[in-house]
Design a protein around this nucleic acid. Structure first.
Lengths: 205, 205
DNA sequence: GCATTCTAATACACACCTGTATTTGAATGT
DNA sequence: ACATTCAAATACAGGTGTGTATTAGAATGC
């Protein structure tokens, strides 16, 4: 266990990372607006000096946070289509992935906060919407890919399906997040699976 | 145009109403957390004294605001089923209502803010979830009513349909609200109508 | 080893908000 | 008319936050 001296770059990267992780936790707990720069720096074990030396503003840090999660989710999506199999297996895999999204998606609240910020801050909106747009396009591409692989034409245009499925998932997850007492994880799954199967496959799950 | 002296009760009701309307506007513009009691009172043409004399807290006022909108929406929903008609006309009416919700729903952002607050404030959550729960139950009831009227069994349990449809609508409207440039009102309508028709009617709109 | 460079801490000056306590003045009741 | 009551304004006593400017000290380079 050698704790050797860190070079400047290593040290700064470490600080940056700790600030990002701390900010994520604080944003989850208190919300973006209520989270102060002091809270974040403090939770990471620094003072505001470290924060402003690493990020121009809270918004800047937030976008970085979203970029991290955006890339992670993109990577997760990619794995579904690897190791192609029979049509039945593909359908089953896609359905299970979709109807369990609400359990995985740890950063959901972050994206909701970001959307609200985007509504009110034009600068932020431009950069944020780039993520949303990319997400929609990637999902559309996967949907087309799926259609080709299973050899069935799509019931609706890929873009329409993409937006509907993302919207549905977000909407249902919001219910689940706000009121897990009444809206159980199983209920959310039932809804997602039910709608997905009817819209995409035209049958029951 | 007689501007006669107001009685105490009238005057207080007026103040209360102005505060509520001002708060709604401010919450929309700046968000609930960023809105200060001073902002609200100021926008209504009063000082904080008037605010605290009419509401216990910002949360309290917020719940009142939600109650107003909740009742208005409930009333809107009720009108669809009045003047029963043929099966085709009913389906058409329901479909049009649903796929245009995102245009009417002026207070959408208020409900998003409320959900975020509910996640973080236990007291608020209990009272807020009562609204959500009631909304879900009412919608389920209407769905059952619809099924009876058109004489077709439901493709999914009424509760499942209710949650899915509400979630879908919320999710799609969020896209539309955040990025109306890329996600047009027509696009939102297409998605809502497409999903609704496939899930509920098992056919294209 | 000494000067330089850069990260993070600290100092500063100011802005804004909260909730309660007290006061003011208009509406009410007799 | 006069005393009472109540809505809303104002006074008060803090508390928290911001961003910049300056400083301290460790890493780097010669």
């Amino acid at each position: 266990m050698k704790r050797q001296r860190l070079t400047r770059e290593q040290s700064k990267d470490q600080t940056r990372l700790r600030l990002l992780d701390a900010a994520q936790a604080i944003f989850m707990k208190k919300g973006f607006v209520a989270a102060s720069v002091e809270d974040i720096a403090g939770a990471a074990g620094y003072t505001r000096g470290a924060f402003y030396s690493n990020f121009r503003s809270k918004n800047e840090l937030f976008l970085e946070l979203l970029r991290r999660d955006h890339e992670a989710m993109q990577a997760g999506l990619q794995t579904i289509f690897e190791n192609a199999a029979t049509r039945e297996e593909m359908e089953e895999r896609v359905l299970r992935y979709y109807s369990n999204l609400h359990r995985e998606n740890k950063c959901f609240l972050l994206w909701v906060e970001a959307k609200l910020l985007a509504v009110r801050d034009g600068r932020f909106r431009i950069r944020f919407n780039a993520f949303l747009h990319e997400k929609l396009e990637q999902l559309s591409a996967y949907i087309r890919e799926f259609s080709t692989r299973v050899g069935t034409p799509l019931p609706l245009p890929a873009e329409t399906l993409a937006m509907g499925l993302m919207g549905l998932c977000d909407g249902v997850q919001f219910f689940y997040t706000v009121d897990p007492q009444n809206v159980s994880s199983e209920m959310a799954e039932t809804v997602l699976a039910g709608f997905f199967a009817r819209v995409v496959f035209g049958r029951d799950p």
